[in-house]
Amino acid sequence: MKLQVNGVMHEVEASPTARLLDVLRGPLGLTGTKEGCGEGECGSCTILLDGLPVNACLVLAGQAEGAEILTVEGLAAGQLAPLQQCFVDDGGAQCGICTPGMLIAAEALLRRNKAPDDAEIREAIAGNICRCTGYQRIVDAIKHAAVVRAGGAS
């Protein structure tokens, strides 16, 4: 099976009925995408499939053939992307297990809405459970990243 992940085409030996999450974490070695519940509730395994956020635990590998997949490993190009840097600086990550999925959900939001307000941010990450932060600092980090992406002060 062929999967395009983070801009690179991979040839991978896997059953098309395997969960995309297991193929990413296993044969492709991309363990940045996490499993928190295995039933699409926690959002820790959020990836972008052709630009849309999905739970990789609910997608079959075969469904992702021909699609463009983005995981947390694909966010940084050399240095941290503004979104990642803002999560580090503003306290958006604590234990870090929800962070990859949270970043991907935020990336999806900022691609379609360059200047989201608090309510739009909260709605966009409502499928990603964080048990550590209380969310305020995640919301602040995403808002901050939107400003940086728009060329504003960091």
Binding site: R25, L30, T31, G32, T33, K34, E35, T71, V72, E73, L75, A76, L80, Q84, Q85, F87, V88, D89, G91, A93, G96, I97, T99, P100, L103
Partner: peptide
Amino acid sequence: VPRIDGHAKVTGKAVYVDD
């Protein structure tokens, strides 16, 4: 100070037990 493990956590490089 930005948390020292922040970089690994936002890039997916932090190794949890299942990783």
